[in-house]
């Protein structure tokens, strides 16, 4: 009897696992087809630049304040903590380098992308999802217009273009946050701080972060637009798919960041 129960439990667990894996594979496949359709429009030059500009404005404006705040605070905290540690070795001037390098190489690209996907990405998914459940997506097709071209491509292109700009801005604000602490709290001379900052950031440092940002921009646009484009199930569905969009973006950013960092360090130093 107990054996039979255990057997039954195992079968159920197996079928769940199989179901889960097959759903995952089908989802990934669909997402890739979706990306193909988008890229197809882009290479054919079917990009509506007026829409792209509107999207850049909306996505940028929406995220810029919170990114500035978070970056300033991160830079300041880095400087506060870095100062405590470096001061033990009598090397407090190096605080400027610590702040600048951490921000430019790692923190701004990753945390900026998190914030961006939570604000702009969630908005993309919710907007497209709402259009979907209100039949606006189908209506677009009945009007003889391709919804991917009209509604998705501008959003994804804007994502790709606006995120790098936001991240560079975030790096500047973060460095300013560190500078603020360095000057007023650690009493490092302003000229020294600026000099140390400029000296520490090389091309490689900047572009290794920047390259990741380009990738994250594509990733966020892709994941969030995909979830929005395939939203089903009314207003409940919009909530579910939007949450999924943001959660997947986070996970994919974390994982791809690890891989990209390893690749960049291996080939570029």
């Amino acid at each position: 009897m107990a054996d039979a129960e255990r057997e039954a439990e195992r079968t159920i667990a197996m079928s769940f696992l199989i179901r889960y894996i097959s759903d995952f594979l089908v989802g990934t496949g669909n997402a890739l087809f979706f990306l193909r359709d988008v890229l197809f429009c882009v290479v054919r030059g079917r990009i509506r630049w007026a829409e792209v500009l509107k999207q850049i404005y909306e996505q940028g404006v929406q995220s810029v304040v919170i990114i500035a705040l978070a970056s300033f605070a991160s830079g300041a905290v880095l400087a506060l903590q870095g100062y405590v540690m470096l001061n033990r070795f009598g090397a407090k001037e190096y605080v400027a380098q610590l702040v600048a390098l951490s921000l430019v190489r790692e923190l701004s690209p990753v945390f900026g992308s998190f914030i961006f996907s939570g604000k702009a990405g969630a908005r993309l998914a919710a907007e497209l999802g709402t259009m979907n459940v209100n039949d606006q997506m189908l209506a677009t097709r009945t009007l003889g217009v391709d919804p991917v071209e009209f509604l998705v491509v501008p959003r994804m292109v804007a994502c790709f273009l606006v995120l790098p700009g936001l991240i560079v801005f975030s790096e500047l604000v973060g460095i300013f946050g560190g500078y603020f602490i360095g000057i007023y709290d650690a009493h490092i001379p302003s000229a020294t701080y600026i000099h140390q900052t400029l000296r520490s950031i090389g091309y490689v440092d900047f572009f290794s972060g920047f390259f990741k940002t380009l990738f994250f921009g594509l990733l966020i646009g892709w994941v969030c637009c995909y979830q929005g484009f395939y939203t089903r199930g009314g207003s409940l569905g919009v909530g579910q798919y939007t949450t999924k969009a943001v959660a997947f973006s986070y996970i994919l950013i974390v994982i791809s960041n690890m891989i990209l960092t390893k690749l960049i360090l291996t080939f570029w130093g």
Binding site: T130, M131, N134, D135, Q136, L138, A139
Partner: peptide, 8 residues
């Protein structure tokens, strides 16, 4: 469409 499906 039933609900119009106008672009909002």
């Amino acid at each position: 469409f039933q609900q119009g499906a106008l672009y909002d």
